[in-house]
């Protein structure tokens, strides 16, 4: 377990703090001549979306390194429904409630 290893966590947090400031303040530090090329900007737009998808998908679609796509995967159905609700409403609280509600319903009732 990494979470209980103090030196590992302190090093991780130090690096993560630098990553936050380095990205958010990035262009505040650069001279005005340095512009963001349009192509690079578009790549930067796609990367976070792909990264988020690549974090969520294995978390919900796999169990112990095996693909677990199927009717029995409560988390998967809850997430699909919640994502659809969010795409329509753009309301985070509604989406959370629906997602956790569907999950709990499937877990306890179905």
């Amino acid at each position: 377990m990494g979470l209980h290893h103090w030196p590992y966590m302190l090093a991780a947090i130090a690096g993560l703090t630098i990553v936050t400031v380095a990205t958010r303040a990035s262009f505040f530090m650069l001279p005005a001549q340095v512009q963001l090329p349009a192509r690079v900007e578009r790549a930067l737009r796609y990367a976070p979306a792909c990264a988020l998808a690549a974090i969520v998908a294995p978390g919900v679609l796999t169990r112990d390194h095996d693909i677990a796509i199927g009717w029995g995967n409560d988390q998967m159905w809850a997430l699909i429904i919640a994502a659809a609700v969010y795409a329509k409403t753009r309301n985070m609280i509604v989406m959370m409630t629906v997602g956790m509600g569907v999950f709990t319903f499937l877990r306890l009732v179905v």
Binding site: L36, E41, P48
Partner: peptide, 30 residues
């Protein structure tokens, strides 16, 4: 990075993951 920290993934992978998720902030800053 939570799932990565939990399995004690190498720190460069942890930082690179956070960096990629944060790349949208580079656009904001620009």
């Amino acid at each position: 990075v939570l799932p990565l920290l939990a399995v004690r993934a190498p720190l460069p992978v942890v930082w690179a993951t956070a960096l990629v998720v944060n790349l949208r902030f580079v656009i904001f800053a620009a």
